[in-house]
């Protein structure tokens, strides 16, 4: 299949601003699907609300565009009902970790086989540039016109602590790595989190004088490094990319088979 066969051309043009990183995530995801050789009918994409969440509508798979922050809860219903389907949940940073934070940690805790993708642009793009729980101390936003005094989550550490069994990070500069991580995450049996540092030039970029889209993407090249690299030792401020955790633990929707088996034999 060609990449464009994964797309619903009928629904174009897309809603994203020129230079938005969300389209780059879409592109990487389509390459992943293409390389995995799974059928479209076996994929369900569930998303919430935000610029990032619109990604699902453009892909020619089963797509469920839900409400703000709750995509993982909808996805849990899909997965429990049809454990054989691949369930992928792209989310914005606000969607996943502000309003959806509770569902995020509980999905991780259950280790349900859902692939969470957090498109982290450190801002509420869709509503026009308010600060998110990933904006970070000292940034500016329409709702932090003087200085943001909120500290940011570390998505990887949060995910690992909550029980996710595959945790990784990359950026829109590293598109090849992004596709590879998506692939590993989809093949992983359990709850996976791939955080993608992405750019919102329209709001985060402009407010924080982070430059245009190209400059923002380049900054990901300069302020990140592969996990365990020498560069990190020399410059601890660098953000690490790569796979933080990949471990095998029983997966939730399959574990439920045990409940059924015990229930049927009335074993407690």
């Amino acid at each position: 299949m060609a990449i464009k066969d994964w797309i619903r051309e009928r629904f174009f043009p897309h809603i994203w601003c020129p230079g938005c990183g969300h389209g780059m995530v879409l592109n990487a995801l389509l390459h992943t699907f293409e390389s995995l050789g799974i059928s479209k009918n076996e994929i369900v994409m569930v998303s919430g609300i935000g610029c990032s969440s619109r990604i699902s509508g453009y892909v020619d798979v089963h797509t469920l565009h839900t409400i703000h922050g709750r995509a993982l809860a909808f996805a849990t219903g899909v997965k429990m009902s049809r454990p054989d389907l691949n369930v992928i949940v792209p989310m914005g940073d606000g969607d996943a970790l502000a309003i959806g934070g509770n569902h995020f940690i509980h999905s991780a805790r259950r280790n349900i086989n859902i692939n969470a993708i957090v498109m982290n642009n450190r801002v509420y793009g869709m509503t026009g540039g308010q600060y998110s729980p990933l904006s970070g101390y000292g940034t500016l936003a329409t709702t932090a016109p003087f200085i943001n005094i909120d500290h940011a989550f570390d998505i990887s550490r949060l995910s690992m602590a909550a029980g996710a069994t595959f945790v990784a990070r990359t950026t829109t500069y590293h598109t090849k790595q992004m596709s590879e991580l998506f692939k590993e995450a989809i093949l992983h049996e359990g709850f996976s989190v791939v955080e993608v540092l992405t750019q919102c030039p329209t709001y985060f970029g402009r407010k924080n004088k982070a430059g245009n889209a190209v400059e923002m993407i380049k900054s990901f090249k300069n302020n990140t490094t592969q996990i365990g690299s020498k560069a990190k030792e020399q410059n601890p401020d660098l953000i690490e990319r790569g796979i933080f955790l990949q471990k095998d633990l029983p997966e939730y929707s399959r574990e439920y088979d045990k409940v059924i088996e015990r229930a049927k034999t009335k074993k407690r």
């Binding site: 569930v46 809860a73 909808f74 849990t76 219903g77 997965k79 009902s81 509770n102």
Partner: peptide, 13 residues
């Protein structure tokens, strides 16, 4: 909230 969302997801399948 999650309960209501989950039954919608399950119903769709």
């Amino acid at each position: 909230i999650a309960s209501m969302c989950a039954i919608i997801g399950a119903s769709l399948t």
